[in-house]
Design a protein around this nucleic acid. Structure first.
Length: 920
DNA sequence: ATACCGATCATTTTT
DNA sequence: TGATCGGTAT
């Protein structure tokens, strides 16, 4: 994927960064990292290396630069060792980028430095010391989907009505409690309404099951890590001593637990730098707490505060617009962003007739930009909700605009991929009940819900894990049919064999998939869909291969001091210093090599320990059990560590060390897009995922009340804070743009089956006139320049001029006229009319949809291919909506290749989708 | 046990 | 609109 570049052109960047050879361990006479190109505020931040530091960094003020320079300065000039540095970022992407930059700045390497997200850091810490909390180092990470399913199962088991108690509401209540470090019991005792009370009960069971499965969800990763640091002074000390310099980026988006973790780690040396911008706080719904940043000075009265207010990213109009919008918020620190750059181009606002027109217009503008020399890579399209991406995608596909989508429904969310991952998870951690249950009958083994219920029962009776119960069931002749027993035997065998497999990661995964019979099942099915699923699995194997290749790169792995020592890194503190370090059981999962050797017999058998006096680990475990919700649980589960250990002894150690590493990488969703092709393409993503990025040209689609700000109705009414967050989101979107900004909104939009007319977003209205230009159907400056601006594909919208041009025949399938609806359906809708979106029922005659449904349903998405095939042949002259006229070079299947006169370039277009008409 | 159906449902953002 | 859930028929 594209490496998103941070400011490339600002003036300060033109000063070359000098890092001279051989930085001495002791401070040299003159600074080695050249900071002359920084502005005074930036300089001050970079040079303030000791003590607490708060950097209020406005958008585009060069904070990443400050962060990296500061670290480089410490290492190159002040003799700080890389392994003493912990730099926390918000996303994996940001971490990767920062690492990359630091590597460029520091020729001697950055080995030992931890540059990662909170989550990654917590995983790393927990892998090492999870046994202190009653988990095993190979604990499984449950991603959001896993966690959701688990909650769903629990609620089903508890017979809680999902209609009365929506699962998302329950989950968010639990999550809120977790992040406030409130346990299930406490939550239950505090509950003063039935919903909270139910949530607390689910919470208790969730904890129990997670623990029994030796699994942690995303919240747990943070909470348990904090628990580790709080309850284990030797562990805390280990990290406090090691990480003398800590920085946290995007501090405004940290939640309470993250805040606690950061403060705890920095408690000893107080060298904590936090960077953030309260105007960019957009994750409060996820527990992010702006007061973390607002109260930093209270937490550290001796904190130095630096404000970065000069913007190096955007041109004047864009910056002015951003300032104007965010000024409407009341809850903010006053800031004054300014720029030296000129005014630049005005912001373009376009009112589309509907969402398809919006997509088409954006595609056309993108094409103009591209023709003018802008690379596709420099263009981004943002939207508020993922649902909006579909139609945009569709339009870009038709227009031949290459695109790449960040986020949204991902490859790794596909059922077949998750199945494969569940197999892998199960093999690594057979105690992981969710995964086991997911694939126990995938592919079909004749094990249905009744069998599963019986196995559950067996597990209860024998106080063992579900997986072990599966094995027991193979011998239970009375309880299960021979067919089920055979299926189970085969299933259980997968784990036995899978754990023993070794070699190339890809081969191991392939062997497991093969053994599981997944692909075979698809082949047997023989449908197109099954085929594509099989292909996806094939692609997943490629991912595994690529992972193994790229992941050997030691940079980017979070190494413990022990590992660094073992690798011969000098200048580490004496081994005696780390009391916890020396005694800790080596982490078994993530880190490659050196671990396989460990001798299982060396380790105390946790089962024996039950009779023996309590060791520290056992003690911890006992505390956990006593202190946690488990007391309330109907059946006390076996502690995860014991189950997992027993499983390991039963099924042998896991031979393929790369497997857990792959799973961890997948679970934390490391930059998945890195895997997609390198071809030049525009980037599509939600505004949330755009945070931290920048693009020369930015489109923001769906600037409408109800869309952005989202659900204006209740947001504005019952919580002004929500609206302010939406506004900050708009601020983030606007400030991503460097040179060109386009805001689009549609007069009518089809959402969830009904068409609604949304007024233009208040955020657009908040931009002073002098910075913005309007066009499109609602603008007075509208000029009829033909279909490029207003004809829709059916050529019916607007004046009708465009559609007549080619007799209404667009790419071969002549579509039914929708009559004069183009005029009538917009009557009375003015862009500024009220703020309440008007919703039309889908059956109302004057909506777009009602008219369209009068024609065959297939018309929209599947034009008549046969007719399209008649239409185009090599040599034909065609006209494309955005590319102009051209000649057909070839026509194969659904694709035609056209050479366009204007650009001379050839493009492959999808027949039946591209907005093409045949001229001759 | 599974396949299919129809009804119902909720629709944000992500580590 | 689409996904997902629960129920029913096979």
């Amino acid at each position: 994927m594209q490496v998103v570049r941070a400011a490339e052109e600002p003036a300060y960047e033109q000063v070359p960064l000098d890092v001279y050879d051989a930085p001495a361990p002791s401070a040299p006479a003159r600074p080695v990292v050249d900071i002359d190109g920084l502005n005074p505020a930036q300089k001050e931040a970079v040079l303030t290396t000791e003590g607490p530091l708060l950097v209020l960094a406005g958008a585009g003020s060069g904070k990443t630069r400050v962060l990296t320079f500061r670290i480089a300065h410490m290492i190159a000039d002040l003799g700080v060792r890389p392994w003493q540095i912990l730099a926390i970022t918000f996303t994996n992407k940001a971490a990767a980028e920062m690492r990359e930059r630091l590597q460029a700045l520091l020729p001697d390497g950055t080995r030992g430095m931890w540059v990662c997200t909170f989550h990654a850091m917590c995983v790393r810490m927990l892998r090492e010391d999870a046994d202190l909390l009653g988990y095993t180092g190979q604990f499984t990470i449950y991603d959001d989907d896993d966690s959701r399913r688990l909650v769903r199962d629990i609620m089903a088991a508890m017979e809680i009505d999902q209609k009365q108690y929506p699962i998302n509401m329950i989950r968010s209540k639990i999550s809120t409690a977790k992040n406030a470090m409130i346990g299930p019991d406490e939550m239950a005792s505090r509950a003063d309404d039935p919903r909270t009370e139910k949530a607390a009960r689910v919470y208790a069971e969730l904890e129990r099951r997670l623990r029994a499965a030796n699994a942690m969800d995303f919240d747990d990763l943070l909470v348990r890590a904090l628990e580790l640091l709080r309850t284990r002074p030797e562990v805390l000390e280990k990290y406090q001593d090691r990480f003398r310099y800590i920085s946290v980026d995007e501090y405004q988006d940290t939640n309470h637990v993250q805040y606690e973790i950061a403060n705890l780690l920095a408690a000893k040396y107080h060298n904590l730098m936090v960077v953030g911008d309260d105007d960019q706080s957009i994750y409060s719904w996820r527990g992010a707490d702006i007061s973390n940043i607002l109260d930093f000075e209270k937490d550290f009265p001796d904190a130095k505060v630096v404000k970065l207010e000069q913007n190096y990213r955007s041109t004047g109009h864009i910056l002015a617009a951003a300032n104007a919008v965010v000024r409407h918020n009341s809850q903010r620190k006053d800031k004054r962003l300014f720029t030296d750059a000129g005014d630049g181009e005005k912001i373009q606002a376009y009112q589309a007739s509907d969402e398809r027109d919006e997509g088409r217009w954006i595609a056309a503008e993108i094409d103009k930009l591209h023709d003018a020399g802008t690379s596709y890579d420099d263009i981004a399209v943002f939207y508020r909700t993922n649902a909006q991406s579909r139609i945009l995608e569709d339009m870009f596909l038709r227009a031949g605009v290459p695109y790449r989508i960040v986020g949204g429904t991902r490859f790794f969310d596909r059922a077949e991929i998750r199945d494969v991952m569940a197999y892998l998870k199960m093999i690594v951690n057979p105690a992981d009940e969710m995964s086991v249950k997911r694939v126990i009958n995938t592919p079909r083994r004749g094990i249905g819900s009744t069998s599963i219920a019986k196995i559950d029962q067996l597990a209860q009776q024998n106080r063992c894990s579900f997986f072990q119960a599966c094995e027991l069931a193979t011998a239970e002749t009375g309880m299960f049919s021979a067919k089920v027993r055979n299926g189970l035997a085969s299933f259980v065998g997968i784990v036995r064999e899978g754990r023993r497999m070794s070699g190339e990661l890809k081969d191991v995964v392939e062997a497991i998939v093969d053994r599981a019979g997944l692909v075979q099942a698809f082949c047997a099915e023989g449908t197109m869909e099954a085929e594509s699923r099989a292909e996806n699995i094939q692609e997943f194997l490629g991912v595994a291969a690529e992972f193994e290749e790229t992941h050997e790169d030691i940079e980017g792995t979070l190494e413990s001091l022990e590992e660094l020592r073992a690798a011969g890194i000098s200048d580490l503190p004496a081994g005696a210093g780390g009391s916890g370090e020396a005694s800790a059981v080596p982490a078994q999962a993530a880190a490659p090599a050196a671990r396989d050797e460990r001798d299982a017999s060396d380790r105390p058998n946790p089962l024996d320990a039950l009779a023996a006096p309590l060791t520290s680990a056992q003690e911890a475990l006992a505390t956990m059990i006593a202190g946690n919700s488990m007391a309330a649980a109907p059946v006390e589960p076996l502690p995860a560590a014991l189950v997992a250990d027993e499983i390991e002894r039963t099924y042998g150690p896991l031979a393929c060390a790369a497997l857990p590493a792959l799973l961890e990488w997948l679970a934390l969703r490391s930059d998945l897009d890195a895997l997609s092709g390198q071809a030049s393409a525009i980037t599509m993503m939600t505004v949330h995922s755009a945070k931290g990025l920048e693009f020369p040209a930015v489109f923001v689609a769906g600037m409408e009340e109800g869309i952005f700000p989202h659900v204006a109705g209740f947001a504005a009414a019952d919580d002004p804070g929500k609206l302010e967050e939406e506004r900050r989101l708009a601020y983030v979107a606007i400030t991503r743009a460097r040179k060109r900004l386009f805001l689009t909104y549609a007069a009518t939009r089809r959402t969830y089956g009904s068409t609604q007319a949304n007024p233009r977003s208040r955020f657009v209205n908040e931009i002073p006139e002098e910075h913005i230009e309007f066009s499109g159907i609602g603008s007075s400056g509208f000029e009829g320049t033909g279909w490029e601006k207003r004809g829709d594909r059916r050529g019916t919208f607007g004046s009708g001029m465009g559609s007549d041009m080619y007799g209404g025949r667009v790419f071969g399938s002549r579509t039914r006229s929708t009559g004069g609806s183009g005029v009538s359906r917009h009557t009375g809708i003015s862009p500024d009319a009220g703020l309440k979106p008007a919703t039309f029922g889908s059956g109302v005659a004057h909506t777009t949809r009602a008219k369209a449904s009068a024609s065959p349903a297939v018309e929209q998405r599947r034009p008549d291919v046969a007719r399209a095939a008649e239409t185009f042949a090599p040599g034909d002259t065609v006209s494309h909506k955005t590319f102009g006229t051209g000649t057909v070079i070839s026509a194969e299947g659904d694709m035609i290749e056209v050479q366009f006169d204007k650009s001379g370039k050839t493009k492959k277009l999808m027949k039946g989708f591209a907005p093409i008409v045949k001229l001759s």
